[in-house]
């Protein structure tokens, strides 16, 4: 069965199809994701560590918080926006993500296993109840 292994080495039409497929998929996921989130202003900042909620902050009150886990993230809330301004994690992707304010948007620090998510009212958190 391994005898019929043949492969083309030069770039061909199928590859262009593959590339456009991957890019389309990326755009599709992106559009769906951005439409579902961030359209309305949230008012609660929730800090998750390894999937568990550890802290809740109000977006209306300016604060500074240190989140310590594997690394340390410095979080600030100002002008109804939240950002990670300092971090000692290797990639610093969380810092580069900038400030967020829309409901459903999130900042993620993967090395620190921390996610900061903006949510709406507390009661809107329950999507459905399974009995």
């Amino acid at each position: 069965m391994e005898r019929e292994n043949k492969i083309r080495l030069s770039f061909c039409k199928g590859d262009a199809v593959v590339i456009s497929f991957v890019i389309m998929l990326a755009i599709l996921i992106g559009v769906v994701f951005w439409m579902k989130t961030g359209t309305e202003q949230g008012n609660i900042v929730v800090v998750y560590q390894e999937g568990e909620k550890i802290q809740e902050l109000s977006l209306d009150k300016d604060t500074e918080v240190l989140i310590e886990n594997y690394y340390t993230n410095k979080l600030i809330v100002r002008d109804k926006k939240v950002a990670i301004v300092e971090s000692d994690c290797p990639g610093m992707d969380c810092v580069h993500s900038g400030a967020i304010s829309g409901k459903g948007r999130s900042l993620v620090c993967l090395p620190n296993r921390v996610e900061i998510r903006i949510e709406g009212e507390v009661d809107s958190e329950v999507d459905f109840i399974v009995r």
Binding site: I23, I29, T37, E50, R105, V108, E115
Partner: peptide
Amino acid sequence: VAILFMGSVYVIGYLPYLLIVSV
């Protein structure tokens, strides 16, 4: 895996970027 580890589906937001880069 990141969704499982973080316990959140919002990590999907990174997928479009990653897919473009993977090209």
